[in-house]
Amino acid sequence: MKRLGVPGGILLAWIITGIAGPLLPLTPNAIDLSHVLQSGDAHAWLGYDDLGRPIADRLVIGARTSLLVACGVVGISMVLGSVLGAVGGYLGGWIDHLLVRVIDVFLAFPGILLAIALAGVMGPGLDNVVIALSAVGWVGYARLARAQVLSIKTRDHVMAAVAVGASRSRIVLRHLLPLVSAPLLVEASFGLAGVVVAEAGLSFLGLGVQPPIASWGSMIRDGTRYMLVAPHMVIAPGIALFLVVLAINLLGDWLRDWLDVRSRS
C-alpha cells in the first residue's frame, strides 16, 4: 500500500476538484485585459492567460472536463465492449466470427486517428468527444472479455447453470462477466490514462470542448502561441496533465500486481 500514497493523492485531488470545481468561488472565464499574460500574483498564483483569465481557476475546470470525459468514455466502452466480447465468446458460431472480424478491422487503426476523424466530422463538443473516443475504445475490452470468457466457459459452475436451465443472458451476466472482471479492471485503469490524453489531444487540435470551457489540451494549444513571452501558459496545464496520467499509470501497475497476487493465492 505504501506505493499508493503519492499517486493516490494526485488522483484524489483530480477527482475532488473535478466534482467540486463548480462549487468553488472561481472566475475561470472572467476576462481582465489589465492582467494579460502576467505571471503569478496573490489572486492568481499560476498567472494569467492571453485574455487575463486566472490559469489556476481554468485548471480546475479543465480537471472537470477531463474527469467527465474519462469516466464517460471508460464507462461506455467498458460496458459495451465487455458485453459484446462475452456474448461473442460464449455463443461462438457466426456471431463470434463476425465480432472477431470487426475487432481485427478496428485494431488495424491507430485508435486516436479514427477518433480525430470522427470528432472532426461530428464537430466539436463534449458529447461528441465522448462518442468518438467510445467508438474506438470498446474494442480492447471486447477482445479481452472474449478471450477470458473462452477460457472459462466450460467450467463446472457454468455447466451447472446450463443444466438447471439458466438463460443465456443470465449465464453471461451472472456467471461469466463477474469472473473476468479483474483483467477488465486493469485494462480500464490503463484505458483511463489513454482517454485523459486523448481528450486533451482532441482539444489541443481544436476538436474537443468549445471555448470558453477550459480543457487542459486547449489550454496547452492557446499557450503555444505565447510560449516566448508567457511559458507558464503551456507549463501549468502540461504538468497537471502529466501528473494525472503518471498517477493513473502507477495505479494501473499496482492494480495489476495486486490482482495477480490475489488470483494466485
Binding site: A193, V197, A200, G201, F204, G217, I220, R221, G223, T224, M227, V234, I235, P237, G238, L241, F242, V245, L246, N249
Partner: peptide, 10 residues
C-alpha cells in the same frame, strides 16, 4: 506519461 502535444512545445 508525457503526452506528445506537450512534449513538442517543451
Amino acid at each position: 506519461s508525457i503526452p506528445n502535444f506537450w512534449l513538442g512545445p517543451m
